[in-house]
Design a protein around this nucleic acid. Structure first.
Length: 724
DNA sequence: CGACGTCCCCTTTTT
DNA sequence: GGGGACGTCG
């Protein structure tokens, strides 16, 4: 076994202080790149190694499966312990586990299924249809946002306040939706948390059991917790347990989905936190980059206060490039990437970040043309693919026949002649008998009052699968389902079904792997939950990787949100323009601008050595050319840290769409006295850049971007512009 | 039932 | 511009 001293070796004073805190609640303010994960895992290792607790006596909570895995991997490299059975995982994973263990007290069937976001939305649409609610007036997505918002605040429908007709309707929908979920025996993501919270609150003996067990609770990314998660922690922490909360208020970028930075303050107050350890030494970036990040974030109010520093040198200046348009911006990035590669930086060490996904298209296009391999993060994941969800829906129905959401997904897929009419009859029958659709369907078939041959076929199929599925392995069941259901045959007939078939085969592989891994595992310690249900849980809670092939060298493309927690040798932040970053929409939200600024802070601190900020004078957005001015965040960086790569942006021979700008506009002429991209001076607005000409020859206007004075359209005849 | 047209909207995202 | 959702027609 590794000795204590070697476990703690190499920690700086602050890190050491945090790792070895006594059994009290503490808040660790861990700046970007300050060794947060290391502190968290070393703390766990130290607690176990010194015998203060056992692996089973602590709980470690994260937000993502990735973070949980990372933590456990690092832990096993420090201590020769078996992490299986440890209560380390995501909020949702841990709540699910508690609910499985106490499903009766929680009022759930032992095979309850988890609705992912797509399932939840379709369940909500169903409720609204039943209640005849106008989905123009109540867009299902908004209803979903409302319901999840309430749950994340810890509020059931009967506890929500509603004064006007609109919110009363929403509340009514919330109640009806919950009722439907109970009938179906399903729980959405937020429900896992709320249900678990209520369970602990209602059942003192269960609460006491876990409070006694988890003397040490460790929470990662504490700034991202929502109200309900905080309440849950508070309940588990009780009066005597130690909650070790690690977070960075400056990296709170998920307020839009309910995260409450205020939890950090509440935590200090509610737990009488005496120990606040600030980890401010950054081991990632050179000081030019850190100083820029510090300068940006200093513009936010209401910070807990923290200033990153490094003993690394100044490093390179932050490079700023003002592009003529989005194509030019992309081309610039391509050129720089090529140059960096020549200097020996590998592609996988470079990241190209953007504020919103829409920006990736043109970047991808340009990278593709330039033959630069790239990998985009985000998009559909394995268990979210349509064919996989179809196959899983059959399996869900086998596990729990009352799962109407699953039934509706596949009752007529592959098509078997059950149309909208037949379905309506079925739903009507279910409503009248107050039973699930499956029960209604089997009743109909049994009674001989056939809705259609298709329905008969469907019921027979499901019964057959349930029969055949009894006692076979998970892999065999998956195999059985994809063939018997007709999914395989359906996609084989489809010209573009090849990928889907591959994915279905992959599902069988995943099922086999899951049961193998589970054999020696007992990670649920919950004998009531069968393997099929566990597998379906796994599929819902862990939708799979965004990206499978990690080894391949490629430029990393992702949103700034997706980049949180990662680091790269070189980072490009593109589209650093007002309206885009900070995003227009942010202005309408309370604290929106500050969140955008934190987002910028996160983006900047991803870079170890080299950082580029690029913005464009114009870009295509929503099918229209949009003229932008540089983001205020650029101005917030002290000039001495930066290097402007082009002081006077010049029109490139390629304009939007890669087409050449018409000669009449690109070259000065009698009609067009200034080139696009040329700098001009105006008596009132100062210096600006010619963006475009508008109107016809006799009535010509000129559009000029005056930077801080904004974008102006002037009548050429009257505007006294001069070259500069 | 499926193919095709049209309309509408359009940050960020994990579980 | 482009994807998703919905509606109409064959």
């Amino acid at each position: 076994m590794i000795s204590e001293s070697s476990l703690l070796q190499g920690l700086n004073d602050k890190q050491l202080q945090a790792v070895t805190l006594p059994h009290v609640s503490a808040l660790i303010l861990a700046g970007a790149g300050s060794g947060k994960t290391r502190v968290l895992t070393t703390r766990i290792a130290w607690l176990i190694q010194t015998g203060q607790t056992s692996p089973m006596g602590l709980m470690a909570v994260t937000f993502t499966n990735k973070a949980a895995k990372e933590m456990l991997t690092r832990l096993t490299s420090m201590l020769p312990i078996n992490t299986r059975g440890m209560w380390a995982g995501t909020f949702h994973g841990l709540c699910n586990r508690m609910l499985r263990a106490h499903y009766r007290e929680a009022g759930l069937p032992n095979t309850f299924q988890i609705l992912d976001t797509a399932d939840q939305l379709s369940a909500i649409k169903r409720v609204m249809k039943t209640l005849n609610v106008d989905d123009e007036k109540y867009p299902p997505k908004q209803v979903m946002g409302y319901i999840n918002g309430c749950k994340e605040e810890g509020l059931r429908a009967d506890a929500v306040e509603a004064y006007d007709g609109h919110s009363q309707k929403l509340r009514e929908l919330y109640a009806a939706y919950d009722q439907q979920c109970n009938r179906d025996g399903v729980a959405d993501f937020a429900e896992l948390l709320l249900r678990c919270y209520e369970l602990l609150e209602r059942e003192p003996h269960i609460r006491a059991h876990y409070q006694q067990r988890f003397q040490y609770i460790l929470v990662d990314e504490f700034q991202d917790t929502n109200r309900l998660q905080y309440l849950w922690l508070k309940l588990l922490g009780g009066a005597h347990n130690s909650i070790f909360a690690v977070g960075d208020d400056d990296q709170s970028i998920y307020a839009f989905r309910g995260a409450r930075v205020g939890n950090m303050n509440d935590f200090q107050r509610d737990f009488n936190v005496q120990n606040i350890v600030k980890l401010e030494e950054n081991y990632r970036s050179h000081s030019n980059i850190l100083d820029a990040a510090n300068a940006i974030i200093a513009n936010n109010r209401n910070r807990l206060g923290k200033n990153l520093w490094t003993s690394a040198g100044k490093g390179e200046p932050i490079r700023i490039y003002e592009a003529y348009n989005d194509t030019d911006e992309a081309q610039f990035i391509v050129d720089e990437v090529n140059m960096l590669q020549k200097e020996g930086v590998s592609l996988g060490e470079m990241a190209l970040l953007y504020r919103s996904n829409a920006q990736s298209r043109i970047l991808e296009h340009t990278l593709f043309s330039a033959n630069i391999p790239y990998r985009v993060y985000g998009g559909l994941r394995f268990f979210e693919r349509a064919e996989i969800k179809h196959a899983l829906a059959y399996m869900r129905l086998i596990a729990n026949a009352n799962d109407d959401t699953a039934l509706l997904r596949i009752i007529n897929f592959p098509p078997r002649g059950i149309g909208a009419r037949g379905l309506e009859q079925l739903q009507e029958a279910a409503r009248q008998n107050e039973c699930s659709l499956w029960q209604a369907a089997s009743n109909k078939v049994g009674a001989g009052t056939l809705g259609s041959r298709g329905l008969e076929g469907f019921v027979a199929l499901m019964r057959h699968m349930i029969d055949q599925g009894y006692g076979i392995s998970l892999g065999e069941l998956a195999e059985l389902v994809i063939h018997q259901s007709g999914l395989m045959a359906h996609y084989q007939n489809d010209k573009e079904g090849e990928d889907r078939i591959e994915n279905l085969k992959e599902l069988v592989t995943a099922a086999v792997a899951f049961s193998k891994q589970d054999l020696g595992n007992h990670h649920n310690m919950d004998e009531d939950t069968d393997l099929l249900t566990q597998f379906l849980n796994h599929a819902s809670l862990e939708a799979g990787d965004h990206q499978a092939d990690v080894g391949h060298e490629a430029l990393q493309l992702m949103t700034v949100h997706a980049a949180k927690g990662l680091e790269f040798q070189s980072v490009f932040i593109s589209g650093v323009e007002e309206g885009l970053f900070p995003h227009d929409q942010a202005a309408y939200e309370q604290g929106g601008l500050e969140e955008e600024r934190r987002l910028m802070y996160v983006a900047v601190t991803r870079a170890r050595q080299r950082l580029y900020l690029t913005y464009a004078q114009s870009r295509m957005l929503h099918g229209q050319v949009r003229y932008g001015i540089p983001s205020r965040f650029v101005d917030e960086i002290p000039a001495e840290l930066t290097k402007r790569l082009n002081s006077k942006p010049v029109a490139k021979p390629y304009a939007a769409g890669g087409q050449y700008t018409p000669a009449a506009v690109s070259a000065p002429s009698a009609n067009y006295p200034f080139k696009i991209g040329q700098s001009v001076r105006h008596g009132k607005f100062g210096e600006g850049v010619v963006v475009s000409y508008e109107g016809n020859a006799s009535d010509l206007s000129i559009k000029v971007n005056f930077g801080s004075a904004g974008l102006k359209t002037l009548m050429l005849e009257y505007a006294k512009l001069e070259k500069c």
